[in-house]
Design a protein around this nucleic acid. Structure first.
Length: 285
DNA sequence: CCCCTCTCCTGATCGC
DNA sequence: TGCGATCAGGAGAGGG
C-alpha cells in the first residue's frame, strides 16, 4: 500500500530515470486509469506526445512530472491508489498494465495497477501558500516531510475538530501523506488510541503524535530507499521494510514490542486498526 | 459547513 | 472442486 514514503521512493526513481527525456508515445490500455483527466485518453496522449519531462514533485501520496512543450508547462499528476506502480523497463504483469509511455532514449514506462484505484491526469500548476502545485493537489494539506509543513498550525486545527484522532490523521486536508499503516504506527509510538477525540488531547501530545508520524515516515523512506531495485521503480510493499520495522500495523495477536501485551485488532471506519491494549487504552464511554 | 458512510476495484484466502 | 463471502484501502460523492 503506497503511502508517502513509498510514493517518494517512486518519485526519486522517476527523477533519476526520466528527467530531460522527451515522450515519444503514450497509449492507454484501460480507460479507468485516466478517468480523472477531463479530456480522456485522446487528449492526454496527444498533449504528452513530443513533450519533455523537466522536473518532478510530490505532495502527500500524489506525485507529478513537470511537463514542458514549446507552448507551455503543465503537470502529469500520478496517483498510485492502492496498487499502482510506475515501472521502468517495459516490465510488469501484462494483465495489469494500464498506461504505457515510450521515451526518446528507448525507455518504456508502464503504469501498472491491479485494483485500478490509481491513475494519471494532466493539470495546470497553481500557487498555494507560496508553493506551486498541480490543481488536483491544491486541496491537500502539506505532508509532515514538506518544508511548508507547520506542525503547530496542524495541532491547532486538530484541537478544533470534533472527530476521532485517527480519522483526522487520515484526512488529507488536515495533514497529507498518512494512510492506515503509518497512522497506526504513529499512534502506537505515542500511546494514543485512535478513537480518542482530538479535542481532548493536549497540545504537547498532538505535537508528539505529528512528530512521530514524521519520524516513522522518515525511517520508512530510508529503509525503502535501500530495499528497492535501482533499475525498476518498484512499489511492492512486501519487500524490505514492511516485515521488519512495523510495530503496530499487521501485528494482531503478537506481543507489543514495548510492553509485551498481546496486540489487538479493531474495526474502525471500515478499516482495521492494530494497537496495544496496555499502551493505547481505549477511551471510556 | 461539518462530519460520516458508502462506493469504486481485483485477487487472495477462507469456510462450507 | 467450486463458490460465495470477506478483506485489503485512498479518496471523492453524497447523506444527515
Amino acid at each position: 500500500m503506497p503511502e508517502l514514503p513509498e510514493v517518494e521512493v517512486v518519485r526519486r526513481g522517476l527523477h533519476t530515470h526520466l528527467l530531460d527525456r522527451t515522450i515519444v508515445d503514450v497509449s492507454v490500455a484501460h480507460p479507468r486509469a485516466v478517468r480523472r483527466h477531463d479530456g480522456g485518453a485522446p487528449d492526454l496522449t496527444a498533449r504528452l506526445r513530443g513533450a519533455r519531462i523537466v522536473g518532478t514533485g510530490r505532495r502527500g501520496k500524489y506525485l507529478w512530472l513537470r511537463i514542458a512543450t514549446a507552448a507551455d508547462q503543465f503537470a502529469l499528476v500520478v496517483h498510485l491508489g492502492m496498487s499502482g506502480q510506475m515501472l521502468i523497463g517495459g516490465v510488469g504483469n501484462p494483465a495489469h498494465i494500464r498506461i504505457t509511455a515510450a521515451l526518446d532514449d528507448g525507455t518504456v514506462v508502464n503504469f501498472v495497477d491491479q485494483r485500478t484505484f490509481g491513475g494519471w491526469q494532466l493539470a495546470d500548476f497553481v500557487a498555494v501558500g507560496g508553493v506551486e502545485v498541480p490543481v488536483p493537489v491544491a486541496h491537500l494539506a502539506p505532508d509532515p516531510l514538506d518544508p511548508a509543513f507547520d506542525r503547530d498550525a496542524v495541532v491547532k486545527v486538530l484541537r478544533g475538530k470534533h472527530s476521532e484522532i485517527k480519522r483526522l490523521l487520515l484526512d488529507q486536508t488536515v495533514v497529507s501523506g498518512i494512510g492506515n499503516i503509518y497512522a497506526d504506527e504513529a499512534l502506537w509510538r505515542v500511546g494514543i488510541h485512535g478513537a480518542r477525540p482530538a479535542e481532548v488531547l493536549s497540545k504537547p501530545k498532538l505535537a508528539a503524535l505529528l512528530d512521530a508520524a514524521a519520524e516513522v515516515m522518515t525511517e520508512a523512506l530510508a529503509a525503502g530507499g535501500t530495499s528497492f531495485d535501482e533499475l525498476y521503480v518498484n512499489v511492492n510493499g512486501q519487500s524490505g521494510y514492511f516485515d521488519r520495522a512495523l510495530d503496530a500495523y499487521g501485528r494482531e495477536g503478537r506481543p507489543c514490542r514495548r510492553c509485551g501485551a498481546i496486540m489487538r485488532r479493531e474495526k474502525f471506519m471500515n478499516r482495521s486498526s492494530c494497537s496495544c491494549p496496555r499502551c493505547q487504552p481505549r477511551p471510556r464511554r
